[in-house]
Amino acid sequence: MQIYLPIAEVSVNIFLILGMGGGVGFLSGVFGVGGGFLMTPLLIFIGIPPAVAVATEANQIVASSVSGVLAHWKRGNVDFKMGFALLAGGVIGSSLGVMLFAFLRELGQLDLVIKLSYVIFLGIIGILMLIESLNTIRRSKKQIAPVRRTHNWMHGLPFKVRFRRSRLYISALLPIGIGILVGLLAAIMGVGGGFVMVPAMIYLLGMPTAVVVGTSLFQIIFVTANVTVLQAVNTQTVDVVLALLLLAGGVVGAQFGVRVGVKLKGEQLRGLLAVMVLMVCAKISYDLIATPGDMYTLGMLGGH
């Protein structure tokens, strides 16, 4: 059954969209990730204009983050103070990101920048995760204590604030800086940014893992909400019909995914996720490098 999307202005198969939502939702349930980094390239792949894919995916992530954060909130696993610091940076970053997005679209370089961002970030994160999970699997026989964090340049930064839930006394500039970077990514790549923020919170800030996911989801809700509104106002590329279809499939898929996820070991999960991330990265890299079928492309049609 075909459905015509009012903003994307393309006709798509409704079951394909529901299935994609379900499939990505399942994987995000298994691995505990948002899935934006899979969904946005998939949407572009099936012919949704990249601008619409990025903006609409931001809207969908609002929904999946809300349902995720509620569970963490109940268990007290959200550090609101840290969340607000990240959020302050996130609002700045995502607002800049939407402006940059519109500017690049005008220049005709938006698609390239979206794809390059994917290759760079997915490549780095995928390789790091793969190395880490392989090491963990190898190390699991002979226990080695994790490396303790030492004092470094980060502890010399001003504006120190005590984050009680995270048991940290660090400069507020650190979470704000991370927030800015993640906000930029959210606006340009159509992702929540959890795949960058979660490692940064664990390894850079040294937050306890228990509060990391809840706090990052809390921040992602507001950053993606900010992106949604700014894109709706500036580029009119948010397709609510597409977003609702995706999240209907996503919600159901995620529930099944969570059930499968608890049966797998942590390092196996991370290894599998790393492979998946690298596969998406390889596919996008290939598209960038392979000689295009036509050396000429059409830009936006203006003038109405």
């Binding site: 609002v62 809300v66 995720g68 949604t228 509104v229 948010v238 999240l247 919600v251």
Partner: peptide, 17 residues
């Protein structure tokens, strides 16, 4: 429109949980 899109998404996320 943008605000309604957010409200819809928030409601859907809450409903799902």
């Amino acid at each position: 429109y943008g605000l309604i899109a957010i409200i819809l998404a928030t409601a859907a996320g809450w409903l799902a949980s």
